[in-house]
Simulated assay, not measured.
Amino acid sequence: MVDFYDQKKIILVTFGIILLISAIFIPAAVFYPAKVVTITQEAEVVGTSFWSLVLGSAGIVLLAAALFIAALIEQPLKSWLLSGAVAVMGLVSIAFSLGDYYYMTHDGFTYNPPLSFNSSTYTWEEFEKVEERLQKENGTSSIESVAYYFRDGHMVEFSSGRIFEMHNSLARRVEAAGGEFNRIQAP
């Protein structure tokens, strides 16, 4: 019985180490493509925030920690309760990572922010204005961030990500639907 128990610990620690190592690349290599595949086929570009990758990695690290806790704490009830609680937190973190996305279709823009399971879809007519904030560095202007203002009072701002690939097309569609486009140069 002792040999079996030691083997169980070795297996748990081994899988924990594998999860720790995979926490580096799984969010970008698996979670992002999973979003692209499961989101509507009409999506022209699918993006996600930096926080999605962080939350995905944290979730995998928490799952690895749950395995380590199960292997290292000698009291079975205590170890399984604690590892179960840590595993649940890891799964919630992964769920938030998978739920963080934005995409543009022919009809509008859909955004599901970090730490939320509720997405909002806006038609082009629901955009009030688009602001492109530029920064000047070494004599060259580049986009620092983009902000989208909606007629319902909501605002979404992005400072990185695939949004910059879809931004020009998005801004043209907003203008065509009667919204404003403003370019703001930083001093």
Rank of each mutant, 00 (worst) to 15 (best):
S145Y: 09
F96V: 09
E128R: 10
I26T: 15
V61K: 06
T40D: 15
I26N: 03
R183M: 13
D3P: 00
S79V: 05
R133C: 02
I17D: 04
F109E: 05
R173W: 02
Y5A: 13
W124R: 05
M155A: 13
L77C: 01
S52K: 00
G56W: 01
F109I: 08
K78R: 13
D100K: 00
K8L: 14
P187N: 12
G161I: 10
V146W: 06
L98W: 00
S145V: 03
A70K: 07
F15W: 12
G99T: 04
V45P: 01
F150V: 06
V46Q: 07
F96P: 07
A65Y: 00
T140R: 14
G161Y: 01
F127H: 05
L170C: 09
G153Q: 10
M89N: 04
A28C: 01
V156N: 10
A64C: 05
E128W: 01
T105K: 03
V86E: 06
S97D: 08
S142R: 14
F96A: 11
G161W: 04
F50I: 11
L170T: 08
L81N: 12
N118R: 09
S79G: 10
F96Q: 07
D152F: 08
A23Y: 00
V46S: 04
P27Q: 07
A147Y: 02
P113Y: 13
